[in-house]
């Protein structure tokens, strides 16, 4: 998995996407890696281009896709 570092975000450390399992993986700066399941690749692409990853995660991923702590 290729991690994408997000030094500009105040909440998220880095994120990655597993295209086989359709899983978005997010690591928070506070600690803790979380898997978001059944996320289409297009959402990951949107997240990559989103100006604020944290805002995108909170608005468009949270509440839509199931997550679990890794």
């Amino acid at each position: 998995m290729n991690w994408i570092d997000t030094p500009e975000s105040s909440n998220i450390a880095r994120f990655a996407y597993d295209p086989v399992a359709n899983t978005l993986v997010v690591e928070f700066l506070k600690g803790g890696i979380y898997n978001y399941f059944d996320v289409p690749e297009v959402v990951f692409e949107q997240m990559k281009t989103a100006p604020s990853k944290g805002q995108f995660l909170a608005q468009s991923v949270k509440g839509v896709y199931r997550y679990a702590r890794a």
Binding site: S9, N11, S52, G54, L57, Q59, K62, G63, V64, Y67
Partner: peptide
């Protein structure tokens, strides 16, 4: 670490610093 009741951040700013908490919208 204790579970967080209120996570910090906002929906319009840079999001929240955790995925859960009472002050975020509910999950499916």
């Amino acid at each position: 670490a204790d579970p967080r009741i209120a996570v910090r951040g906002s929906l319009v700013g840079d999001g929240y610093d955790g995925p859960g908490g009472w002050n975020q919208k509910r999950d499916v």
